[in-house]
Nucleic acid binder design. Structure first.
Lengths: 140, 140
DNA sequence: AGCTAAATGCAACTAAGTTGCAAGTAAAAA
DNA sequence: TTTTTACTTGCAACTTAGTTGCATTTAGCT
C-alpha cells in the first residue's frame, strides 16, 4: 500500500469514527482497487485467504456499511423471489418496493421508468429492473 | 381450486409444453393468488408444508421459469456484493449491468435514470436501484 | 505503561440452494 | 386399454452464505 493511500484510508476511518485496524484498512483498500462490487469471498481471496477470518470480514463490512463508507451494491434478499411473468414487458418488469422496516415487498404494477440510454459500445441491453426502498404505509 | 382456475392453469401448463402434475398446478395457483413475489419457503407454507418436497418446489419453479410462465422478481445474486459508497447520491446509486452469459457485473457510473414518480399514498421513498442485464462486450 | 470498550477469531450453527440416484407417473405409442 | 418411456418426484447427503456466543486481543484514551 502506498503511504498516500494509507493516509486516505486512515482519514476515511477516522472521519467515520472507526478504529484503524488491520482488517478494516485491508478491506477498504481492496474495495478502493476493485472495479466491480465485491463479495466476501472475493475480498478474502484478495487478502490472500486466511489472513483474516470470514466472520471478521463480515463484521468489518457491516461496520463500514453502518458508517456509510461502503454500501451493498444490490438490495440483498437472502432467498430468491418468484412471481408470475405477466404484467412485464420483455424489456422491463414492474418496479418493486421494499419496506426497510418490515421487509415486505410490494409490486408497483402501475409504475415504470424509461429504459436506460447510453450503454457503452459492445453492451447488449436485455432487461432492466427497478427496485425502490423506503417505508410502507403501515410502517411510515 | 375453482374448476375455472384449474382449466386456466392446465392451459398455461399445456401451452408451455409442461406435464400437468400436482406440484406444478399447486405452485402456479399459489403464485396466481400471491400479491407479492414469493420465496420457496412461503410457497411451501402455502402448500401446508410437507405436501411437496423442497427440492421439488425448486425444480418446479425452475421449469416454470424456463417455460417463461414465472420469473425471478429480482436478479438473484447468491452472495452479497459490496462497493465503496462514493459516486452515489442519497436517493440513487449508479446502475449496475450484469452479463447473463459470464455473470460479471459492471458499474454504470456515468448513467442514471430519473427517480420514480407516483408512489401511492403512505409510501415513503428512500432510495432507488437500477439493474440492467444483457451481454457484455466480451460475450456479445 | 495501564485501562477499557471495541474488535477479532474460533467453533458451532442456521438457512438457502444443489446433486445423485432410486422410485413414481403423465402422456405418447402400441 | 395396456404398455412403454421419458419426464417428475422424493429422499439423503451435500455445499455455500451468513450468523451467534464466547473467549481473547488490541486501538486509542488517560
Amino acid at each position: 500500500m502506498k503511504p498516500q493511500t494509507k493516509k486516505t484510508i486512515d482519514d476515511l476511518l477516522g472521519s467515520a469514527k472507526l478504529r484503524r485496524t488491520g482488517p478494516r484498512r485491508t478491506v477498504l483498500e481492496i474495495l478502493m482497487d476493485a472495479k466491480r462490487p465485491q463479495t466476501v469471498d472475493e475480498i478474502m481471496t484478495a487478502m490472500s485467504r486466511g489472513c483474516a477470518n470470514k466472520v471478521t470480514v463480515y463484521r468489518t463490512l457491516e461496520s463500514l456499511v453502518v458508517a456509510g463508507l461502503v454500501h451493498r451494491a444490490f438490495v440483498h434478499k437472502r432467498a430468491e423471489h418468484f412471481e408470475l411473468a405477466d404484467r412485464c414487458t420483455e424489456a422491463q418488469c414492474h418496479p418493486h418496493f421494499t419496506c426497510t422496516s418490515c421487509g415486505k415487498t410490494f409490486c408497483l404494477t402501475d409504475l415504470s421508468l424509461p429504459l436506460i440510454k447510453g450503454l457503452k459500445k459492445g453492451f447488449v441491453f436485455h432487461k432492466q429492473q427497478v427496485r425502490v426502498d423506503g417505508l410502507c404505509p403501515a410502517c411510515s
